Amino acid sequence: MTSGLGAALAGASSPLWARRARAGRDLASFAEVPEAAEALLGLLLDAEDTAVARQTAEALAWVGMVAAVRLIALAIAEVDDNQADWLQAGVHDALVDSGGGLGVAAVCGELARDPEEAVRRGAADISAWVVGKGF
C-alpha cells in the first residue's frame, strides 16, 4: 500500500471533519481499491458533517470512473433526502468545475446494468441530476 493511500485511509476515521473531507478527496482516485472504496462509502455516508459527504461526492464525480460513481450511487440508496441533497451538490460542483457531465452520464448508463438494484437506482438519480442541470 502506498504511503499516500495509507495516510488517506487513516484520515478517513479522523474525529476532525476537515481531515475526513481531505481523506475523501485523496482517496477518490483509489476508488477501485477495496479498502479505499469501503472508506469512501463511509465518508459519503458521514453523519457527523455534510461537508465531508459533499466533498467526497465532488471528488468521486470529478474522477468520473465507474468505481467512483458507483460508490456515489450506493450511498444514495442509503441516505435520507437531506443527505442526498448534499451528495447532489457535490456532484454538481464537480460537473461545473470539470464540464464532465457527459462522462458521468455515460458511466451512469453503464451502472444502469449493474447487478445490484441499489446501484441501478442511485445511477438513475445521478443521471437525472446531470440531465436536470443541463450537463
Rank of each mutant, 00 (worst) to 15 (best):
A106M: 11
G42M: 00
L111R: 07
S29M: 10
L16A: 13
G90M: 05
V63C: 11
A123P: 09
S127N: 13
L60A: 07
Q88D: 11
A23F: 00
D26E: 15
A37L: 03
S14C: 06
D46Y: 08
W17T: 04
A106D: 15
A112N: 14
D85L: 13
D49Q: 03
C108R: 14
L71A: 07
D80R: 02
D81G: 07
L16R: 12
L95F: 04
G6V: 01
A61S: 15
L60Q: 06
V96S: 03
G122V: 09
K133G: 01
S13N: 12
R22P: 00
V52R: 03
A84F: 12
L40S: 01
A94T: 13
A106E: 15
A18Y: 08
G134W: 03
R120C: 08
E38A: 04
D114E: 15
L40P: 00
A124V: 09
D93I: 01
D97G: 11
A105P: 04
L44W: 03
Q88W: 10
D80G: 13
R70G: 08
G24I: 10
W129M: 06
F30P: 00
R25I: 05
E32I: 03
E116Y: 13
A128W: 07
A112Q: 14
E78L: 03
R22N: 03
S127G: 12
R25V: 09
R121E: 08
E38Y: 01
A118W: 01
G100Q: 09
T2N: 09
A57Q: 04
I76A: 13
V69F: 12
V130D: 14
L95S: 03
D49L: 06
E48C: 02
G24E: 10
W62N: 04
A10S: 11
A31D: 04
L71Y: 06
A28V: 11
R70Y: 12
S14D: 12
R121H: 12
